[in-house]
């Protein structure tokens, strides 16, 4: 296990992909490799791409990867697709649209299933970002599942958040306002050659102008069209690339990056605490069959969850 972290730092694809798998599967002991790489991370620019299902996130991601490769940057991609709440199965299909990068040594493309996480990404995303960062990727793109209004967890991980919209949502824009519409650093109106793009552009631009500016960053609203015309499409995505780089520079110049990193770091520490403190207790209760008994007690209304939790807390206080 010890050498796994070292190999990841050396950029070894095999080790990195296995490490991410182990993180996803929550294999005990995986944190040893993470301990090795954690202090070496923090160099990559992390970009989140989010939007409704079918908005064109994967196709955009594919072209963004191409743009950055043209600029001689290495890229990591974490593409998240939903896990079935019923069977636990998932169909990970984002790769199909990014096949041309499959063999590129400068690109590490990885699919993740949400596995029950509700925020539009998977629990392993945060750690997956660290792994790709440790491999030395310059830019890391996280593509969320197709989201609704409230799946905004990407803001805890990305430095730059891109919200992809498509024409035809019309009136729903109002409804979307809280939540998803608040997290964008950059808006993309995709499929802008479709009917309704102009009015959507107007609505979003108006909304952006009304919103409180985040410390001087004027949220751009960019149009991307003509996926059928590769050259035009590449040009408009390259313009998106420019804006993303502008945003990164802005974050660095205004010293705002640290604020975003702080949020992520706090969330991660929270998780690590949870894993180190609560998880062993839960495992212990489960293993002894005590958990079942306590649930039974609660079902019979013999006691209440607060009393039981307080008892458990006292019992384990000096044990973990």
């Amino acid at each position: 296990m010890k050498e796994l972290g070292q190999k990841v730092l050396a950029g070894d694809v095999r080790s990195a992909s296995r490490l991410i798998r182990n993180l996803e599967d929550q294999i005990p002991g995986t944190h040893v490799a993470m301990q090795e790489i954690f202090t070496k991370t923090g160099n990559a620019h992390v970009i989140g791409i989010t939007g409704a299902p079918g908005a064109g996130k994967s196709t955009l991601t594919d072209e963004l990867v191409f743009s950055w490769r043209q600029r001689n940057k290495t890229v990591g991609v974490l593409a998240v697709d939903p896990t079935s709440p019923f069977t636990g199965g998932a169909l990970l299909g984002d790769r199909i649209r990014m096949l041309r990068h499959a063999e590129d040594k400068g690109v590490f493309l990885r699919s993740l299933a949400t596995r029950g996480s509700m925020g539009g990404i998977s629990k392993a995303v945060g750690e997956g970002i660290h792994v790709m960062d440790a491999m030395g990727k310059d830019t890391i793109i996280v593509e969320t599942v197709g989201v609704g209004q409230q799946e905004v967890e990407i803001i805890n991980h990305a430095h730059t958040v891109i919200v992809v919209l498509v024409p035809g949502m019309g009136d729903e824009i109002q409804a979307l306002k809280a939540g998803l519409m608040e997290i964008a650093d950059i808006f993309i109106i995709n499929k802008a050659d479709r009917d309704g793009a102009a009015s959507l552009y107007k609505e979003v631009t108006n909304m952006v102008h009304m919103s409180v500016t985040k410390g001087g960053w004027e949220i751009p609203v960019l149009l991307v069209e003509s996926v059928q015309e590769p050259k035009k499409f590449a040009e408009s995505v390259s313009a998106v690339c420019d804006k993303i780089e502008d945003h990164y520079r802005y974050l660095v110049d205004k010293n705002l990056l640290s604020e975003r990193l702080r949020r992520k770091t706090a969330a991660e520490f929270n998780e690590a605490l949870w894993a180190a403190i609560l998880q062993p207790v839960l495992n212990d209760l489960d293993a002894g069959g005590e958990m079942e008994k306590m649930v039974d007690q609660l079902l019979k209304k013999e006691t209440d969850p607060y009393t039981l939790a307080a008892e458990v807390a006292v019992r384990y206080k000096n044990k973990v």
Partner: peptide, 13 residues
């Protein structure tokens, strides 16, 4: 495989 098997499936295209 996804529905009955509860597996994570990647289809290459």
């Amino acid at each position: 495989l996804r529905e009955q098997g509860g597996m994570e499936v990647i289809y290459s295209g």
